[in-house]
Design a protein around this nucleic acid. Sequence first.
RNA 1: GGGCUCGUAGCUCAGUUGGCUAGAGCACACCCCUGAUAAGGGUGGGGUCGUUGGUUCGAAUCCAACCGGGCCCA
Length: 992
Amino acid sequence: MNEKKKNYKDTLNLPKTNFDMRAGLLKKEPAMQAQWAKQNLYGQIRDARAGAPRFILHDGPPYANANIHMGQALNKVLKDIVIRYRNMTGYDAPMIPGWDCHGQPIEQKIVEQLGEKMATMTSMEIRRRCAAHADKFVNIQSEQIQRLGVLGEFDKPYITMTPEYESAVLEVFARLVEQGLVFRQLKPVHWSIENRTALAEAELEYHDREDDSIYVLLTTADPSALKGLFNLDDKTPAYLMVWTTTPWTLPANLAVAVHPDFEYSAVKFKHAGRDAIAVIASDLVEKVCGVGGVGKFEVLATARGAAMVDAGITYLHPLIDGKICPVVPANYVTLEDGTGLVHTAPGHGMEDYGTALKFDLEVYCPVREDGTLDETAPDWLIGKSVWDANPLVVDFLGNAGTLFHRQAITHSYPHDWRSKTPTIFRATEQWFVAVDGSMKRGTTLREMAMDACRKSADEGGMDFVPAWGRNRLAGMLESRPDWCISRQRSWGLPIPAFFDEAGLVLLTPASVRAVAKRFAERGSDCWFTDSPAELLADYNPADDPDLANPNTFDAAKLHTGHDIFDVWFESGSSWFAVAIQRGLVGEIPVDLYLEGSDQHRGWFQLSLLPALGAAGLPPFRTVLTHGFVVTEDGHKMSKSLGNTIDVIDQLSKRGADILRLWVASQNYQDDVRCSESLIAQSEDAYRKIRNTLRFCMGACCDFDPASDAAEPSEHSLDRWMRLELHQLVRDVRGAYDRYEFHRATRLMYEFCTVQASSIYMAAVKDRLYCELSDSPHRRATQAVLHEVLVTLVKLLAPILPHTAEEAWEHIPARDPNEPESVHLTLLPEYDEAMLEMAEDLRPVNPDLAQFSSDEIQVGPAWIWDRLLELRADGLVKLEALRNAGVKNPLDAEAVFSIAAADPAAEAFMETYLGELEDLLGVGYARIEKISSTSLQPVSDTLPIAVRVEDTREKYARCARSWKRRPDVGSDADYPDLSARDAEVMKTLGKSI
RNA sequence: GGGCUCGUAGCUCAGUUGGCUAGAGCACACCCCUGAUAAGGGUGGGGUCGUUGGUUCGAAUCCAACCGGGCCCA
């Protein structure tokens, strides 16, 4: 018996393929990537698309100082999907990856490594080490990104520290200078007195420190204004009370800030034995009086901060005779500490500085580099260090009777991480790009930027995916201050400004371009090695219309400035340095910038501003943003919390295509959740997709569309499958077009799961395995399966490039006219007419679609919906039968009941009976006519009922197809076979 | 604290302009097959649509407040 069974098995057309069931991505992917590199697949794609319309996705440069993390993987994979998709839809879509190399984090790392040796190092030595560090991580990241399967010009990426890039940045800068947008102004920075240098936020350490906390009474300059506002008619002296822990900043006091919405009280109490009235925020009155040891106090009246500002209240400077200062509004005023009135010294605080810009106060800083007060300070403070000044100021106030209270407090205070000494805020000269200053072309950067935010790309503005990006970018541009582009560090692109002995600046478009030329030839290191005369070798003062006195120009008397550019200025110039200079576009905008949503403030905004200033146009047509990678429960990932998922780890454990499938399955517009189990879920999905492809290959092992193709018959399941496939092509391409990759992924995955595996493949196994290999019925199914295979492989290629390529190589009898690599092909088109026909022939009036009339027009889509309803109903009944003991559906028959006098239903059933047998996977299916009154139809639109019955006693089992059917044994030569199988065996000429 | 934003089954997602009992797939449970086999198939359970109010005949959908998450600022 076993022998016999086995012999029949040999007569079947079982699937055969050497496309591995198990992916083995860990081995195959690197090999495939090496192969792609060897055959220069990227170059081949470029060649194949030469002359086609361009689609430029300009890559934002990641910072080259660490292994890539999941957020970068997400970003790079999304970009790669876009690039591959565009190339497969006939665009010429190049990808030039880039890296951001300059900047504080790398410099800090190097300085940390150097430790004590640092003191003996020159800028050049530090720069060399930084460059080596950046170079190392460019290579590491490049390898890691390519391991993700990302396609691009990795042998010639753009690197911001290269001479050609640096000189391009200077050209953008020259154009901004040309537009009159670049200026120099004081701005407070963190300052290390010990090292006489500006510090970045990251170079600060916070330690506890003890300081004097003082409450100061500021005498009102015009008592009547204050008393008018609070409706006081008292002769008592009136004050504003402020609080500070940095008494040394009081010489630089220029204003008092109040919150416009807070309520302030005029409080009367005894101070130094005399009556006094002081203004304090109402909520803080008790606290302040308590601290100051005031036993009894009286609130005389209250007023809003805004009213104080409106009343034009002024006060006398606490240290400088005759100086009168204003009260200004500020929203950063809080009720946490102090008095609700904030001592404002624009040269010594960031918020104070912002207030100064807003209200046109001087950015006054009487503190020199060495931390001593300069000659503009009161006599008794000149030359004193700020630390020595503290007690002197306190004493002075005490003597003047304006010190309300003094106590020592311990608070967290910033220190220079290297010298461990306390830092101060100190205003220094910085370079700025003006946001509101009008430029040569007439408007301001802010006006241009806001205008671009209001318009769509087609109107000369920008498009946003998702749409709220427009609002977010506009909000930031609306309120942003002038852009401070200078930094006081070594590792960066020098700002090419020269100073003469008098401190006058040489910075004109021509001088910048001269330096740019020098940088292009020698790199920006020459700023530190060459003389100004050498740097300006290409500069002719006589030809420079922007130079005030060409006759007195003497390069020998110049010295170079020490500032470097904010790295954002460098990356913000990439539209010019890369997109234009490397010939991707003749002029901006490029098509797409695609980055994380944090780049609204970063790269998007800081590319938009230079581009508007230098070129008068936005750099991009569309901004697409994605969310951040967060943990499974939606919290942020951070190394310190130890809840990160490591990209490299996942790549070496699961492979790039798994990670890519995870990326593609996520709706990246929100935050993207990531965990082992979520990626594992993608791994499961991957297997399903892979096996679907594998089944198609196996089933088509003896099929060549060129010679064996057969058109599926009119009412066949194959037609339905093709219809589903073309819908899939339409929907997936639409999703790709809208950058909705998670929809594309889900559509394909569910297609594999439901339409392909569960419904179609299960149903057509019998005809594939049991029929003669060249029967038209079987060939038609193979033709559809082949089309499914080729179509799916192409549609999947942007997301699963390795698997698609591997599958492409294994497609049986692949069209020889198609390219060797799937990545050189074009995506399949869908047959619009076919889809329309399927849809348009739906019943005109569903209420009449009873099949009792032959007048009603129904299309394939409608019919197959009904058939699948019948299938679903049948499957539920089969499940019941299985629970009753009939384990194998081949041991059951499906019985379709129709009304005796319903020729339409009868015709319908006769047409689809065979397909329903396969859809249910039963051994046999038959039609039964019953009285219309006893018919309980499966749905109100189809007057047909289905039930299933045990046939184990009724029919014999066909030894070849395993189906129980009435016709088993009908052929005397093959008593153990059904009629169909006996026929097949005869034709095969084999006997058992 | 401010700006922007998100919140539908354990997970990933659908849910057109407010309208049948909120849907898929995965996962899970149970079952089947052993001719896709480290595969394949079937059935089933599971959701107060973040919470609370409001508008409405009717709200996952519109409005408000709140709670929770994220990005960017302060």
